[in-house]
Design a protein around this nucleic acid. Structure first.
Length: 207
DNA sequence: CACCAGGAATGTA
DNA sequence: TACATTCATGGT
């Protein structure tokens, strides 16, 4: 019994098995590398879209060298500097799109008083606002919410879909149904959500 | 040389 | 709802 949930639940048991197999994941970015702050996690959530983590990390490393590893710094850039900015994040691929996405996100965050202010907003309402931004879909929004803002929301990605197939956990399809499936069967615990998703990614990479 | 990686937007059926 | 295409670099 953990937080009132029976550990016989198959979804929770799958988590325990992954934990036993791979050990407790580190904080974002989970496997090696140095620790990221909330702004860097937010930025890297976009940099890593459809890109392997190594390339996203290369881009973030260059942002650090230019002291652009914060939304406030990116939000201060004028539009005519965006082509220059795009070269800095070039290793992450799709760098023209990602330049626009990062810049519009940074401007939006600035307009709303910074990440700490934004963090005070209710989860569902905040999630909707993130989804309304260009280039932020459900996975990126939830990644920002869970790992940068420490909100209790379960992240679903391709690995998760393969995982539930592999273990026959559910036939549910679509982002939200799968997300609700996990959330309904797990204690509403942020660290658990973070570790579980990280472990699923670790599992997916190892296959 | 081909293939893929810690997605999302857009268009089609 | 379910697919297909586009966006692009760097590793294997």
């Amino acid at each position: 019994m953990i937080n009132g949930h029976q550990i016989t639940d198959r979804v929770f048991c799958a988590y325990l098995e992954l934990l036993n197999q791979f050990g407790t994941p580190g904080p974002w970015p989970w496997f090696g590398g140095i620790k990221y702050n909330a702004e860097e996690i937010t930025i890297s959530a976009i940099l890593t879209q459809a890109t392997n983590w190594r390339n996203a990390e290369l881009a973030l490393e260059q942002l650090r060298q230019h002291k652009l590893n914060s939304l406030s710094a990116i939000g201060k850039l004028t539009k005519n500097k965006l082509p220059w900015f795009s070269k800095i994040i070039r290793p992450s691929g799709f760098y023209q799109q990602k330049t626009k996405r990062l810049w519009s996100l940074a401007v939006w965050v600035k307009k709303h008083g910074g990440l700490k202010k934004i963090k005070k907003q209710p989860l569902e309402s905040l999630r909707g606002k993130l989804l309304a931004l260009d280039g932020i879909g459900p996975e990126t929004a939830d990644t920002i919410l869970l790992y940068a803002l420490n909100k209790p929301i379960f992240v679903i990605d391709e690995y998760t879909k393969r995982f539930i197939q592999d273990r026959n956990l559910t036939r549910a399809t679509g982002y939200q149904p799968i997300q609700k499936f996990f959330e309904a069967r797990l204690p509403r615990n942020i660290k658990l959500y973070q570790d579980y998703h990280a472990l699923i990614v670790r599992w997916g990479k190892g296959k």
